[in-house]
Structures are given as C-alpha cells and as structure tokens.
Amino acid sequence: MSNLEDLYREVILDHYRTPRNRGELPPPATCTEGTNPLCGDEIKIFLNVIDGIVQDVRFSGHGCSISQASASMMTAIVKGKSLADVRAVARRFKQLMTIEEDDGTTPADIRLGDIEALQGVVKYPVRIKCAVLGWNTLLQGLNSTDA
C-alpha cells in the first residue's frame, strides 16, 4: 500500500471529499468545458475576470479523485491572481507533471503550495491527464477571455 499513499495523499483526498469553489457562476462569467475522451471525465470552469484579475472561479462536472482534487486546488490558488500569474502557476504545475520543461522563465515567487502533493501522480503516467484536465480547461478559458 505504500505506493498508493504517495498518490492518494491526505490533502488530495481532502480536496476530493470537500472540494473548494465547486459550482457555477452566472454570466458574464465565462464557461469553458473540457473532457478527457479516454475516461469520459467532464469538467466546466467558470471564470470571472475583471481588470486582468481572476475575481472568481468555480468548477463543476465529474471525474476521479485526482482530477477533482486538482481542479479544487487550482481554483483555490488562482483566485485573486493576475492573468500573468495564473499562467505562470499553470506552467509550474505542468512542470511538476513533467509535461513541460522548466525553461527558467517562471518567476521564483510562483509557488504551488499544497498542489505539490500531486507530484505522486507522475509515477502513474495514465493519471497525469486526469490531473491536468482542469488546468488545460482553465487555460483555454483564459485564452478565450483574452480574445
């Protein structure tokens, strides 16, 4: 069981059992949908960006503990951040998941905090997709907000 404890850390199970910022936001907040066609997981990210700051964020949908906990932690960290910082956090997260290389451009003060607990996912490559589903959907939402 020791390996599984790396994957299912207490903080992850906590976010899974009691997700933060779960729900929806009415317009003018944007809504972006993401799916993982492999396992059928679906997620919606609601974003309210005012003056370049994420004023509010919510997520809904269904998925495994990893995708739900990751989305919950993500909403907690990006709330109140500037769009540039949100993108930097997302980049740092993808570096943690080993799907992006650290090119040294992410500012040192961009930290992931609790989210580091998801590092155990890297040992289970098929689950990386679960962990990044919410993040990719958020980035997609940001891109459409910019446009």
């Binding site: 492999l38 059928g40 998925g63 495994c64």
Partner: peptide, 22 residues
Amino acid sequence: DVHPHDVSQVLDQHNVCVRAGH
C-alpha cells in the same frame, strides 16, 4: 461513489487488472 479510475488504480496495486472507462 468512488470513481472507476480510482477503483482500478487501487485494484492495480493488487495486480488485479480491470478496465475503467466508457
């Protein structure tokens, strides 16, 4: 209400190979 992915992950730890998905 455990997600099938989580079920199959734990089962895999016991070398029990099941498919999770659609």
